[in-house]
């Protein structure tokens, strides 16, 4: 079976698979950023326990293999009285992991600002909340465009672990399995999924680079 035939026979499933992969990537990335902001706030706060918990969170979730986390969510949590459907498990796991990397990116974005600018802002008479709103957040966001783009691409690739749980429609990696179970597609199924991944990653990389050029802070 050639690529053309695979597309002809499974085209509809592929489109919904691609869309569902994209949607999952966006949801996981957005959720990861939001949680990452929260973790970062904890890590820079003057309240010691929050700092410790934030640091601990990052060490746990940047070091745990996502598959290991997924099996805990899918198989272990039901024993502890928490039963989530497969897609929810998957999304929550990826969000937890993405948040730890997002927080690391935010932290290095904040570190890049430098103590001097904060002191200057203080000297002008800006309040703490003004300093955060006018100096810290804008600079941290603008310096993290490239790392965050890479994290978005990494999120896309991480959704491939969705192939380890039953999903309808399957995401792009699960599609190889799906097509193979139903026909003798061989290499073609792989090629179509690969093109979808590489195309998406290329597009995201291109957009991220463009955005970075626009907002990059020259130091």
């Amino acid at each position: 079976m050639g690529v053309g035939e695979v597309v002809a026979e499974f085209g509809g499933v592929y489109v919904s698979s691609l869309l569902s992969t994209w949607l999952m990537t966006i949801v996981c990335f957005a959720g990861g950023l939001a949680l990452g902001v929260l973790v970062t706030i904890m890590r820079v706060s003057p309240i010691k326990p929050l700092r410790v918990v934030g640091d601990f969170y990052v060490q746990v979730f940047r070091n745990i293999p996502t598959i290991s986390l997924l099996v805990i969510f899918v198989y272990a949590l039901p024993y502890l009285g928490l039963l989530l459907d497969y897609r929810t498990c998957l999304i929550v796991c990826i969000i937890l992991v993405v948040a730890s990397f997002a927080s690391e990116n935010f932290m290095s974005g904040i570190n890049a600002i430098g103590v001097g600018q904060i002191e200057a802002a203080r000297s002008v008479g800006l309040s703490f909340s003004q300093i955060v709103r006018l100096i810290v957040i804008p600079q941290a966001l603008r310096t993290t465009v490239l790392p965050m783009t890479n994290l978005l691409i990494a999120t896309l690739l991480t959704t491939a672990i969705g192939s380890q749980v039953p999903l309808t429609p399957p995401e792009l990696t699960g599609m190889v399995n799906y097509v193979n179970a139903r026909s003798v597609a061989g290499i073609s199924a792989f090629v179509v999924s690969a093109i979808c991944y590489a195309g998406t990653a290329l597009l995201l990389g291109f957009l991220g680079n463009k955005l970075d050029k626009k907002v990059r802070i020259v130091r």
């Binding site: 690739l157 991480t158 399995n177 193979n180 290499i187 991944y197 290329l202």
Partner: peptide, 23 residues
């Protein structure tokens, strides 16, 4: 380089596990 960087390792594993044996 760009291709390997933009494919999930799991997809590549499926390639070697499901596709290659078919040949």
């Amino acid at each position: 380089t760009d291709l390997f960087r933009s494919l999930p390792s799991l997809l590549l594993i499926y390639f070697f596990f499901l596709v290659i044996p078919k040949y």
